[in-house]
């Protein structure tokens, strides 16, 4: 992994209203099949993608919110959520899915994938990436 590029996917759109959220998730999952150092950022309306309790049976669209829980299996376990974006929308961490990954090296211990960050912390994380993808 040492010479793998650090790639970050930045998600800023709500799910269902546009196709960006699902497209991003598909690209992340395909990309994760290769050895990359992947992280995700959710900010602005992108934080809505991670909310609990989504039920799309009434609108005739695929509910892809369960797929975020598979990210840990795909070794995508650095998920940054922008605190300001949550607050502006009246959301807290409790409104989001509890995403975890299992650490094979520590007897499959469950660890949190989501990291709640301030704007300035997120700014530092972005500055540290090699490649940014925007959705």
């Amino acid at each position: 992994m040492s010479n793998a590029k650090k790639m970050m996917y930045i998600n800023r759109k709500a799910p269902y209203g546009t196709i960006y959220a699902w497209e991003s998730l598909e690209v992340v999952l395909i990309g994760a099949a290769f050895e990359q150092d992947v992280s995700l950022a959710f900010m602005d309306d992108g934080v809505y993608q991670l909310t609990k309790g989504q039920d799309t049976s009434g609108i005739g669209m695929k509910n892809f919110s369960p797929t975020y829980a598979a990210l840990g299996d795909f070794e995508v376990n650095k998920i940054y959520v922008d605190k300001e974006s949550l607050e502006e929308r009246g959301l807290t961490l409790d409104d989001l899915q509890h995403l975890v990954w299992e650490d094979e090296d520590e007897d499959w211990a469950e660890k949190d994938s989501i990291r709640l960050v301030s704007r300035s912390e997120l700014s530092d994380v972005l500055a540290d990436q090699d490649v940014l993808f925007n959705f």
Partner: peptide, 23 residues
């Protein structure tokens, strides 16, 4: 949400299936 005050004083409806889809 920060946008909620925009609705004050207006007659407002929302579509239930779209609420449910978004949790």
């Amino acid at each position: 949400g920060k946008a909620a005050p925009l609705l004050e004083g207006h007659s407002v409806s929302v579509l239930g299936p779209d609420l449910a889809a978004r949790g």
